[in-house]
Design a protein around this nucleic acid. Structure first.
Length: 433
RNA sequence: GGAGAGAUGGCUGAGUGGCCGAAAGCAGUGGUUUGCUAAACCGCCGUACCGCCAAAAGCGGUACCGAGGGUUCGAAUCCCUCUCUCUCCGCCA
């Protein structure tokens, strides 16, 4: 793991070589993503840092050579004394230059953090969500269903998903599932995990808290701490998604090329403060501070990244399909891509009662961006070491899927049909009533 | 929570101020020998960054012995702080 001279991780994100060799490409990416990044300052910081580094290294080289000569001299001899005097001068010069270098590296570390990942060439260029492409749609359109209603208006819902008691026990955004509600959550998780395992993902049950290094490697820190709950003790964070502990599983490791692609699936609760989003989507299951999710994570050979993204998207899609829920897949445009993402698909399920789309999965390729930051590399047969590419996607998020089941499968008699695929765990075909 | 021990390369483990990026062994890898396997013998075998080169290969340089700071011309080695691990006792799902 590369460390800066100030002791913390050097947070390379994009490949610094691209920055030097093809700054125009980076400039285009910054513009397309609508990022706030002063590229000239970053390039200049790189230049200053490298110049300082060369200088310090040159001096240290001289220092080392002189040191070797000293070892051969008799201690206390006139030659020895002379040499010590000479080295004192050299030493103070080195220290002076080192201070300058340290400053330059601190500037560089901060600067490189502001450079977003480059979008893939297949990503539509547009400034805002209106530029997202509808990649595909699937399922029966129930827009005109006369008795459809939002899940939070179903009369018997509170006996299964208790929001007021959740507020009492913990706070808003922490519903308490009970009886059929709890069983539905469990059935969905079981279904998601079983499907993932069948597709070759290794099931992993990670910690629900991570340290600062892990949160930094996947990009939650230093900018998004408002998203995470932090322990009072201070150094641990409740995970906002299993992506964080799972991606960090191989942090600072060099993987054998033959082990790729590695695929893992993790079920965890996810904790999100959602600071700043008060008043938006707060009703029902749409947006919660704690929710359950199965996350799919892949570590792949760079050449295979985009094939793996398509298959990841397909893995997630099939889950929605098997549940029989209408959905659409969006190919996100540059303006709607996250800072770290090169390409992203969102899967949105149709909620017939609310008459709106709910995001239930987001499948992204980060290329080497996270891996570079997290020190996850592989060695090819020639012995070269380079970052793996990382991908992840939800497979799937429980509450919104649950909302969609409640709304789309609502029957005229007020009960809800349970999808067949959940039968092994739910053990009934109807919920409610 | 109390007491003690420790942290060196993939692993084991030497190394108390300069010739130490670091002995030795194991593992790995290339080769020689051998009818095959095994054994033996020889070589190679950390990571990151910087530079030269159009690039790769290659070559050169610097850093890294848990982390940070200090002493010193010079630190794996001496001093301080922190983190983590292990053992014993207590407590506990």
């Amino acid at each position: 793991m590369p460390r800066s001279r100030t002791g913390f991780y050097i947070l390379y994100m994009i490949d610094p070589k691209v920055l030097r060799d093809d700054p125009q490409r980076v400039r285009t990416a910054i513009r397309d993503k609508g990022s706030d990044c002063d590229l000239d300052a970053v390039v200049e910081a790189d230049r200053v840092r490298r110049a300082g580094l060369r200088e310090v290294e040159r001096l240290r080289s001289r220092q080392k050579a002189a040191n070797g000569e000293m070892a051969a001299l008799a201690k206390g001899s006139p030659e020895f004394r002379e040499k010590v005097a000479e080295m004192k001068r050299l030493s103070s010069e080195v220290k002076e230059k080192e201070v300058a270098l340290r400053d330059a590296e601190a500037v560089w570390d901060a600067a490189i953090l502001t450079v977003p990942n480059l979008p893939h060439e297949s990503v539509p260029v547009a400034p805002d969500p209106s530029g997202n492409h509808v990649f595909s749609t699937w399922g029966e359109d129930r827009k005109d269903c006369p008795y459809a209603r939002p899940h939070y208006e179903i009369p018997w819902l509170e006996e299964r998903i208790d929001f007021p008691r959740g507020v009492k026990v913990t706070g808003a955004g922490f519903p308490i599932y009970r009886g059929e509600g709890a069983r539905m959550v469990r059935a969905l998780v079981q279904f998601f995990l079983r499907e993932a395992i069948a597709k070759g993902y290794e099931e992993i049950h990670p910690p629900l808290f991570v340290n600062e290094e892990s949160a930094t490697a996947t990009g939650q820190l230093p900018d998004k701490e408002g998203q995470m709950y932090q322990t009072v003790e201070g150094s641990l964070y409740a995970i906002p998604t299993a992506e964080v502990p799972v991606t960090n599983f191989f942090r600072d490791e060099i993987l054998p090329e033959a082990s790729l692609p590695l695929k893992m699936a993790a079920y965890t609760p996810c904790f999100r403060r959602e600071a700043g989003s008060y008043g938006k989507d707060v009703r029902g299951l749409n947006r919660l501070h704690q929710f359950d999710k199965v996350e799919l994570v892949k570590w792949v050979h760079p050449a295979r990244g985009y094939d793996e993204l398509e298959s990841l998207r397909d893995d997630a899609e099939q889950l929605v399909r098997k549940l029989g829920l209408p959905y659409r897949v969006l190919l996100m445009c540059t303006g709607d891509l996250g800072f770290a993402q090169s390409k992203k698909y969102d899967i949105e399920v149709w909620a017939a009662g609310q008459r709106r789309w709910l995001e239930v999965s987001s499948c992204s390729n980060f290329e080497g961006f996270q891996a570079r930051r997290a020190g996850i590399r592989f060695r090819d047969e020639k012995g070269n070491i380079e970052p793996v590419h990382t991908l992840n996607g939800s497979g799937l998020a429980v509450p919104r899927i649950l909302a969609a089941i409640l709304e789309n499968n609502l029957r005229e008699d007020g009960t809800v049909r349970v999808p067949d695929v959940l039968r092994p765990w739910f053990e009934k075909d109807t919920v409610g009533g």
